[in-house]
Design a binder for these strands. Structure first.
Lengths: 198, 198
DNA sequence: GCATATACAGACAGGTCTGTCTATTTGCAA
DNA sequence: TTGCAAATAGACAGACCTGTCTGTATATGC
Protein backbone atom coordinates (compact mmCIF):
# COMPACT_ATOMS: atom_id res chain seq x y z
CA UNK A 1 0.00 0.00 0.00
CA UNK A 2 1.17 3.52 -0.74
CA UNK A 3 -0.83 4.61 2.30
CA UNK A 4 2.09 4.39 4.71
CA UNK A 5 4.14 6.52 2.38
CA UNK A 6 1.35 9.05 2.16
CA UNK A 7 0.98 9.12 5.93
CA UNK A 8 4.67 9.89 6.23
CA UNK A 9 4.61 12.67 3.65
CA UNK A 10 1.47 14.20 5.12
CA UNK A 11 2.79 14.15 8.68
CA UNK A 12 6.21 15.38 7.60
CA UNK A 13 4.62 18.24 5.69
CA UNK A 14 2.73 19.35 8.78
CA UNK A 15 5.73 19.13 11.09
CA UNK A 16 8.25 20.60 8.69
CA UNK A 17 5.89 23.45 7.90
CA UNK A 18 5.14 24.11 11.55
CA UNK A 19 8.62 23.77 13.04
CA UNK A 20 11.10 23.92 10.18
CA UNK A 21 13.05 21.31 8.28
CA UNK A 22 16.25 21.17 10.30
CA UNK A 23 14.50 21.53 13.63
CA UNK A 24 12.17 18.60 13.01
CA UNK A 25 13.69 15.18 13.67
CA UNK A 26 12.86 11.97 11.90
CA UNK A 27 11.80 10.34 15.16
CA UNK A 28 9.09 12.92 15.75
CA UNK A 29 7.63 12.36 12.30
CA UNK A 30 7.68 8.60 12.83
CA UNK A 31 6.01 8.86 16.22
CA UNK A 32 3.23 11.16 14.98
CA UNK A 33 2.65 9.16 11.82
CA UNK A 34 2.74 5.86 13.73
CA UNK A 35 5.24 4.40 11.30
CA UNK A 36 8.39 2.41 11.93
CA UNK A 37 11.76 3.77 11.03
CA UNK A 38 12.56 1.00 8.59
CA UNK A 39 9.40 1.78 6.69
CA UNK A 40 10.57 5.33 6.16
CA UNK A 41 13.95 4.19 4.92
CA UNK A 42 12.34 1.76 2.54
CA UNK A 43 10.39 4.55 0.88
CA UNK A 44 13.06 7.25 1.10
CA UNK A 45 16.80 6.96 1.03
CA UNK A 46 17.35 9.85 3.42
CA UNK A 47 15.68 12.68 5.25
CA UNK A 48 16.52 14.91 2.31
CA UNK A 49 14.52 12.70 -0.03
CA UNK A 50 11.58 12.94 2.34
CA UNK A 51 11.92 16.73 2.34
CA UNK A 52 11.81 16.76 -1.45
CA UNK A 53 8.74 14.52 -1.46
CA UNK A 54 7.09 16.88 1.00
CA UNK A 55 7.86 19.90 -1.17
CA UNK A 56 6.51 18.19 -4.26
CA UNK A 57 3.33 17.33 -2.44
CA UNK A 58 3.00 20.87 -1.19
CA UNK A 59 3.55 22.22 -4.67
CA UNK A 60 0.67 20.15 -5.96
CA UNK A 61 -1.57 20.88 -2.99
CA UNK A 62 -0.91 24.60 -2.98
CA UNK A 63 -1.27 25.20 -6.69
CA UNK A 64 -4.44 23.13 -6.85
CA UNK A 65 -5.88 25.15 -4.03
CA UNK A 66 -4.83 28.51 -5.43
CA UNK A 67 -5.96 27.85 -8.99
CA UNK A 68 -9.21 26.42 -7.69
CA UNK A 69 -9.92 29.53 -5.66
CA UNK A 70 -9.08 31.77 -8.58
CA UNK A 71 -11.14 29.83 -11.07
CA UNK A 72 -14.20 29.51 -8.93
CA UNK A 73 -14.19 33.26 -8.28
CA UNK A 74 -14.90 34.27 -11.86
CA UNK A 75 -14.47 33.26 -15.46
CA UNK A 76 -12.99 36.65 -16.38
CA UNK A 77 -9.18 36.41 -16.36
CA UNK A 78 -8.80 39.90 -14.90
CA UNK A 79 -11.05 39.01 -12.00
CA UNK A 80 -9.32 35.70 -11.58
CA UNK A 81 -6.02 37.47 -11.21
CA UNK A 82 -7.47 39.76 -8.58
CA UNK A 83 -9.10 36.83 -6.79
CA UNK A 84 -5.62 35.45 -6.08
CA UNK A 85 -5.20 38.10 -3.43
CA UNK A 86 -8.49 37.22 -1.76
CA UNK A 87 -7.36 33.61 -1.65
CA UNK A 88 -4.05 34.69 -0.13
CA UNK A 89 -5.83 36.59 2.59
CA UNK A 90 -7.92 33.61 3.61
CA UNK A 91 -4.71 31.57 3.70
CA UNK A 92 -2.99 34.19 5.87
CA UNK A 93 -5.93 34.02 8.24
CA UNK A 94 -5.58 30.26 8.56
CA UNK A 95 -8.72 29.40 6.62
CA UNK A 96 -7.17 27.65 3.65
CA UNK A 97 -5.56 24.36 4.64
CA UNK A 98 -7.29 22.21 7.19
CA UNK A 99 -5.04 21.55 10.17
CA UNK A 100 -2.31 23.85 8.92
CA UNK A 101 -2.16 27.34 10.33
CA UNK A 102 -0.33 29.99 8.35
CA UNK A 103 3.42 29.77 8.78
CA UNK A 104 4.58 31.57 5.70
CA UNK A 105 5.30 29.94 2.37
CA UNK A 106 6.86 26.47 2.67
CA UNK A 107 9.05 27.22 -0.35
CA UNK A 108 10.33 30.52 0.92
CA UNK A 109 11.02 28.75 4.20
CA UNK A 110 12.87 25.98 2.39
CA UNK A 111 14.96 28.53 0.50
CA UNK A 112 15.79 30.20 3.80
CA UNK A 113 16.95 26.99 5.45
CA UNK A 114 18.69 25.65 2.35
CA UNK A 115 20.21 28.86 1.12
CA UNK A 116 22.48 27.32 -1.48
CA UNK A 117 20.72 27.84 -4.82
CA UNK A 118 22.07 24.45 -5.96
CA UNK A 119 20.47 22.60 -3.06
CA UNK A 120 17.69 20.34 -4.36
CA UNK A 121 15.16 21.83 -1.94
CA UNK A 122 16.01 25.35 -3.06
CA UNK A 123 15.70 24.33 -6.70
CA UNK A 124 12.35 22.71 -6.01
CA UNK A 125 11.19 25.95 -4.44
CA UNK A 126 12.30 27.94 -7.48
CA UNK A 127 10.42 25.55 -9.73
CA UNK A 128 7.25 25.96 -7.69
CA UNK A 129 7.45 29.73 -7.96
CA UNK A 130 8.10 29.52 -11.68
CA UNK A 131 5.03 27.33 -12.20
CA UNK A 132 2.88 29.95 -10.55
CA UNK A 133 4.34 32.70 -12.70
CA UNK A 134 3.64 30.59 -15.78
CA UNK A 135 0.03 30.22 -14.74
CA UNK A 136 -0.30 33.94 -14.10
CA UNK A 137 1.24 34.66 -17.47
CA UNK A 138 -1.41 32.55 -19.19
CA UNK A 139 -4.11 34.51 -17.44
CA UNK A 140 -2.46 37.81 -18.32
CA UNK A 141 -2.39 36.78 -21.93
CA UNK A 142 -6.07 35.84 -21.80
CA UNK A 143 -6.71 39.20 -20.22
CA UNK A 144 -5.23 40.92 -23.23
CA UNK A 145 -2.13 42.29 -21.51
CA UNK A 146 0.27 44.06 -23.84
CA UNK A 147 3.20 42.38 -22.07
CA UNK A 148 1.86 39.28 -20.29
CA UNK A 149 5.30 38.22 -19.10
CA UNK A 150 6.04 41.52 -17.42
CA UNK A 151 2.60 41.76 -15.84
CA UNK A 152 2.82 38.19 -14.53
CA UNK A 153 6.21 38.92 -12.96
CA UNK A 154 4.78 42.00 -11.34
CA UNK A 155 1.77 40.19 -9.91
CA UNK A 156 3.95 37.34 -8.68
CA UNK A 157 6.21 39.82 -6.94
CA UNK A 158 3.19 41.35 -5.22
CA UNK A 159 2.15 37.89 -4.08
CA UNK A 160 5.58 37.21 -2.53
CA UNK A 161 5.59 40.58 -0.84
CA UNK A 162 2.18 39.92 0.66
CA UNK A 163 3.21 36.49 1.96
CA UNK A 164 6.35 37.79 3.62
CA UNK A 165 4.64 40.81 5.10
CA UNK A 166 1.80 38.70 6.46
CA UNK A 167 4.21 36.22 7.99
CA UNK A 168 7.05 38.33 9.37
CA UNK A 169 4.92 41.20 10.63
CA UNK A 170 1.77 39.21 11.35
CA UNK A 171 -0.27 41.32 8.94
CA UNK A 172 -2.81 39.29 6.95
CA UNK A 173 -4.15 42.56 5.60
CA UNK A 174 -1.03 42.76 3.44
CA UNK A 175 -3.08 40.77 0.94
CA UNK A 176 -5.29 43.81 0.47
CA UNK A 177 -2.33 46.13 0.09
CA UNK A 178 -1.10 43.90 -2.69
CA UNK A 179 -4.56 43.64 -4.21
CA UNK A 180 -4.86 47.40 -4.39
CA UNK A 181 -1.65 47.66 -6.39
CA UNK A 182 -2.64 44.71 -8.55
CA UNK A 183 -5.98 46.25 -9.39
CA UNK A 184 -4.30 49.39 -10.65
CA UNK A 185 -1.79 47.40 -12.67
CA UNK A 186 -4.40 45.17 -14.23
CA UNK A 187 -6.75 47.95 -15.20
CA UNK A 188 -3.86 49.96 -16.66
CA UNK A 189 -2.16 47.13 -18.53
CA UNK A 190 -4.97 44.93 -19.84
CA UNK A 191 -8.00 45.34 -22.03
CA UNK A 192 -11.31 44.56 -20.33
CA UNK A 193 -13.09 41.37 -21.35
CA UNK A 194 -14.86 41.91 -24.65
CA UNK A 195 -18.45 42.99 -24.11
CA UNK A 196 -21.30 42.57 -26.61
CA UNK A 197 -21.63 46.31 -27.21
CA UNK A 198 -17.98 46.59 -28.17
CA UNK B 1 37.72 44.78 25.71
CA UNK B 2 34.42 44.49 23.87
CA UNK B 3 36.43 43.34 20.86
CA UNK B 4 35.99 39.63 21.63
CA UNK B 5 32.27 40.13 21.81
CA UNK B 6 32.28 41.97 18.52
CA UNK B 7 34.34 39.24 16.87
CA UNK B 8 31.77 36.71 17.99
CA UNK B 9 28.80 38.68 16.74
CA UNK B 10 30.49 39.46 13.43
CA UNK B 11 31.50 35.86 12.81
CA UNK B 12 28.13 34.53 13.94
CA UNK B 13 26.36 36.95 11.61
CA UNK B 14 28.36 35.68 8.66
CA UNK B 15 27.84 32.01 9.47
CA UNK B 16 24.19 32.28 10.47
CA UNK B 17 23.47 34.29 7.34
CA UNK B 18 25.33 31.88 5.11
CA UNK B 19 24.19 28.56 6.56
CA UNK B 20 21.17 29.24 8.72
CA UNK B 21 20.66 29.59 12.45
CA UNK B 22 19.82 26.03 13.42
CA UNK B 23 22.30 24.51 11.01
CA UNK B 24 25.23 26.51 12.38
CA UNK B 25 26.75 25.14 15.56
CA UNK B 26 28.38 27.12 18.32
CA UNK B 27 31.64 25.26 17.85
CA UNK B 28 31.98 26.43 14.25
CA UNK B 29 31.50 30.04 15.25
CA UNK B 30 34.07 29.68 18.03
CA UNK B 31 36.61 28.07 15.74
CA UNK B 32 36.25 30.73 13.04
CA UNK B 33 36.25 33.59 15.49
CA UNK B 34 39.20 32.11 17.41
CA UNK B 35 37.39 32.48 20.70
CA UNK B 36 37.00 30.05 23.60
CA UNK B 37 33.65 28.65 24.52
CA UNK B 38 33.65 30.11 28.01
CA UNK B 39 34.17 33.56 26.54
CA UNK B 40 31.02 33.17 24.52
CA UNK B 41 29.04 32.05 27.53
CA UNK B 42 30.34 34.95 29.56
CA UNK B 43 28.97 37.44 27.04
CA UNK B 44 25.79 35.54 26.15
CA UNK B 45 23.66 33.28 28.25
CA UNK B 46 22.74 31.01 25.37
CA UNK B 47 22.91 30.54 21.64
CA UNK B 48 19.55 32.27 21.41
CA UNK B 49 20.96 35.40 23.01
CA UNK B 50 23.77 35.36 20.48
CA UNK B 51 21.22 35.05 17.69
CA UNK B 52 19.37 38.08 19.01
CA UNK B 53 22.60 40.07 19.24
CA UNK B 54 23.36 39.11 15.66
CA UNK B 55 19.94 40.24 14.48
CA UNK B 56 20.25 43.54 16.29
CA UNK B 57 23.62 44.13 14.70
CA UNK B 58 22.25 43.26 11.30
CA UNK B 59 19.32 45.60 11.80
CA UNK B 60 21.69 48.48 12.47
CA UNK B 61 24.08 47.52 9.66
CA UNK B 62 21.38 46.99 7.08
CA UNK B 63 19.38 50.10 7.80
CA UNK B 64 22.47 52.26 7.89
CA UNK B 65 23.51 50.90 4.54
CA UNK B 66 20.07 51.23 2.97
CA UNK B 67 19.38 54.74 4.22
CA UNK B 68 22.89 55.78 3.24
CA UNK B 69 22.40 54.54 -0.30
CA UNK B 70 19.04 56.25 -0.56
CA UNK B 71 20.24 59.54 0.85
CA UNK B 72 23.35 59.76 -1.23
CA UNK B 73 21.35 59.13 -4.40
CA UNK B 74 19.35 62.33 -4.22
CA UNK B 75 17.90 64.93 -1.91
CA UNK B 76 14.45 64.62 -3.48
CA UNK B 77 12.32 62.25 -1.38
CA UNK B 78 10.66 60.76 -4.46
CA UNK B 79 14.00 59.93 -5.98
CA UNK B 80 15.23 58.62 -2.67
CA UNK B 81 12.34 56.21 -2.54
CA UNK B 82 13.11 54.99 -6.03
CA UNK B 83 16.80 54.70 -5.21
CA UNK B 84 15.92 52.04 -2.65
CA UNK B 85 15.36 49.60 -5.49
CA UNK B 86 18.71 50.37 -7.07
CA UNK B 87 20.33 49.69 -3.72
CA UNK B 88 18.44 46.41 -3.46
CA UNK B 89 19.68 45.33 -6.85
CA UNK B 90 23.31 45.93 -5.94
CA UNK B 91 22.68 43.91 -2.76
CA UNK B 92 21.11 41.07 -4.75
CA UNK B 93 24.18 41.05 -6.96
CA UNK B 94 26.46 40.69 -3.95
CA UNK B 95 27.91 44.18 -4.14
CA UNK B 96 26.57 45.61 -0.91
CA UNK B 97 28.14 43.94 2.12
CA UNK B 98 31.80 43.06 2.01
CA UNK B 99 32.34 39.35 2.54
CA UNK B 100 28.63 38.57 2.59
CA UNK B 101 27.10 37.27 -0.60
CA UNK B 102 23.36 37.60 -1.04
CA UNK B 103 21.45 34.93 0.85
CA UNK B 104 18.09 36.57 1.16
CA UNK B 105 17.01 38.76 4.04
CA UNK B 106 18.36 37.68 7.42
CA UNK B 107 15.07 38.65 9.04
CA UNK B 108 12.89 36.76 6.62
CA UNK B 109 15.22 33.81 7.14
CA UNK B 110 14.91 34.17 10.91
CA UNK B 111 11.12 34.26 10.66
CA UNK B 112 11.24 31.12 8.55
CA UNK B 113 13.37 29.21 11.02
CA UNK B 114 11.60 30.58 14.08
CA UNK B 115 8.08 30.49 12.80
CA UNK B 116 6.36 31.15 16.09
CA UNK B 117 5.42 34.86 16.05
CA UNK B 118 6.16 34.99 19.78
CA UNK B 119 9.70 33.79 19.37
CA UNK B 120 12.14 36.61 20.22
CA UNK B 121 13.95 36.24 16.91
CA UNK B 122 10.68 36.48 14.99
CA UNK B 123 9.68 39.56 16.97
CA UNK B 124 13.05 41.16 16.31
CA UNK B 125 12.53 40.55 12.61
CA UNK B 126 9.09 42.18 12.73
CA UNK B 127 10.58 45.19 14.50
CA UNK B 128 13.25 45.55 11.85
CA UNK B 129 10.67 45.51 9.08
CA UNK B 130 8.54 48.03 10.94
CA UNK B 131 11.48 50.42 11.31
CA UNK B 132 11.98 50.38 7.58
CA UNK B 133 8.30 51.07 6.95
CA UNK B 134 8.50 53.98 9.38
CA UNK B 135 11.43 55.43 7.48
CA UNK B 136 9.63 55.02 4.16
CA UNK B 137 6.57 56.68 5.62
CA UNK B 138 8.58 59.74 6.58
CA UNK B 139 9.90 60.00 3.04
CA UNK B 140 6.41 59.54 1.59
CA UNK B 141 5.18 62.37 3.78
CA UNK B 142 8.06 64.58 2.61
CA UNK B 143 7.15 63.64 -0.92
CA UNK B 144 3.67 65.01 -0.40
CA UNK B 145 1.84 61.72 -0.57
CA UNK B 146 -1.88 61.99 0.12
CA UNK B 147 -1.71 58.83 2.23
CA UNK B 148 1.91 58.38 3.35
CA UNK B 149 1.09 55.33 5.46
CA UNK B 150 -0.56 53.46 2.62
CA UNK B 151 2.16 54.36 0.12
CA UNK B 152 4.90 53.29 2.54
CA UNK B 153 3.20 49.94 3.10
CA UNK B 154 2.96 49.46 -0.64
CA UNK B 155 6.61 50.27 -1.25
CA UNK B 156 7.68 48.05 1.62
CA UNK B 157 5.66 45.20 0.18
CA UNK B 158 7.38 45.70 -3.17
CA UNK B 159 10.73 45.55 -1.40
CA UNK B 160 9.86 42.23 0.28
CA UNK B 161 8.61 40.80 -2.98
CA UNK B 162 11.82 41.76 -4.73
CA UNK B 163 13.98 40.22 -2.01
CA UNK B 164 12.12 36.92 -2.06
CA UNK B 165 12.01 36.72 -5.84
CA UNK B 166 15.71 37.50 -6.10
CA UNK B 167 16.57 34.87 -3.52
CA UNK B 168 14.25 31.97 -4.23
CA UNK B 169 14.36 32.21 -8.02
CA UNK B 170 17.85 33.67 -8.31
CA UNK B 171 16.57 36.76 -10.09
CA UNK B 172 18.37 39.95 -9.05
CA UNK B 173 16.46 41.75 -11.80
CA UNK B 174 13.38 41.50 -9.58
CA UNK B 175 14.59 44.79 -8.14
CA UNK B 176 13.81 46.44 -11.46
CA UNK B 177 10.40 44.82 -11.65
CA UNK B 178 9.64 46.31 -8.25
CA UNK B 179 11.14 49.65 -9.22
CA UNK B 180 8.88 49.85 -12.25
CA UNK B 181 5.79 49.42 -10.10
CA UNK B 182 7.13 51.81 -7.49
CA UNK B 183 7.77 54.50 -10.07
CA UNK B 184 4.18 54.35 -11.22
CA UNK B 185 2.88 54.43 -7.66
CA UNK B 186 5.07 57.35 -6.66
CA UNK B 187 4.26 59.47 -9.63
CA UNK B 188 0.55 58.75 -9.22
CA UNK B 189 0.33 59.26 -5.47
CA UNK B 190 2.72 62.09 -4.66
CA UNK B 191 3.22 65.68 -5.69
CA UNK B 192 6.54 66.43 -7.37
CA UNK B 193 9.05 68.46 -5.40
CA UNK B 194 8.09 72.10 -5.52
CA UNK B 195 9.77 73.90 -8.40
CA UNK B 196 10.36 77.64 -8.66
CA UNK B 197 7.84 78.13 -11.44
CA UNK B 198 5.05 76.52 -9.39
C1' DG C 1 -3.18 -23.45 5.44
C1' DC C 2 0.91 -21.49 3.87
C1' DA C 3 4.18 -18.38 1.79
C1' DT C 4 5.73 -13.98 1.03
C1' DA C 5 5.86 -9.17 1.42
C1' DT C 6 5.31 -5.45 4.42
C1' DA C 7 5.37 -3.15 8.72
C1' DC C 8 6.33 -3.35 13.38
C1' DA C 9 9.32 -2.27 17.92
C1' DG C 10 13.39 -1.17 19.57
C1' DA C 11 18.36 -1.42 20.15
C1' DC C 12 22.45 0.46 18.38
C1' DA C 13 26.50 3.06 16.28
C1' DG C 14 28.63 7.14 15.41
C1' DG C 15 28.22 11.69 15.21
C1' DT C 16 26.67 16.48 16.63
C1' DC C 17 24.58 19.71 19.57
C1' DT C 18 24.43 23.06 23.74
C1' DG C 19 26.08 24.30 27.93
C1' DT C 20 29.25 23.47 32.16
C1' DC C 21 33.43 22.69 34.27
C1' DT C 22 38.47 22.81 35.47
C1' DA C 23 42.89 24.21 35.10
C1' DT C 24 46.20 27.03 32.63
C1' DT C 25 47.90 31.09 30.31
C1' DT C 26 47.94 35.76 28.93
C1' DG C 27 48.01 40.77 29.52
C1' DC C 28 47.65 44.86 32.01
C1' DA C 29 48.11 47.90 36.08
C1' DA C 30 49.83 49.28 40.35
C1' DT D 1 57.24 42.06 40.59
C1' DT D 2 52.94 40.97 42.08
C1' DG D 3 48.04 40.62 41.65
C1' DC D 4 43.92 40.37 39.18
C1' DA D 5 40.87 40.00 35.41
C1' DA D 6 39.97 37.85 31.23
C1' DA D 7 40.71 34.53 27.80
C1' DT D 8 42.50 30.11 26.69
C1' DA D 9 42.22 24.77 25.70
C1' DG D 10 39.93 20.92 26.28
C1' DA D 11 37.27 17.43 28.70
C1' DC D 12 32.71 16.32 29.87
C1' DA D 13 27.53 15.42 30.50
C1' DG D 14 23.34 14.72 28.58
C1' DA D 15 20.55 15.12 24.93
C1' DC D 16 19.51 14.69 20.19
C1' DC D 17 20.42 13.47 15.39
C1' DT D 18 20.44 10.17 11.15
C1' DG D 19 20.74 5.85 9.44
C1' DT D 20 21.38 0.59 10.16
C1' DC D 21 20.26 -3.61 12.07
C1' DT D 22 17.71 -7.68 14.17
C1' DG D 23 13.90 -10.15 15.10
C1' DT D 24 8.79 -10.38 15.34
C1' DA D 25 4.12 -9.65 13.88
C1' DT D 26 0.61 -8.94 10.52
C1' DA D 27 -1.81 -9.30 6.29
C1' DT D 28 -2.66 -10.64 1.69
C1' DG D 29 -2.52 -13.93 -2.34
C1' DC D 30 -2.46 -18.70 -3.80
Amino acid sequence: MASRRDDLVETALRLFYTSGFNATGIDKILAEAGVAKMTLYKHFRSKEELILAVLNRRDEQFRNWLMGEMEKASSDPRERLLAMFDALESWFRGQAFKGLGFNGCAFINASSEFGDPQHPAHRTAAEHKQRIVDYLERLCREAGAADPHELAERLALLKEGAIVTAHVRGMPEAARTAKGIAAELISAKTAPASVPSA
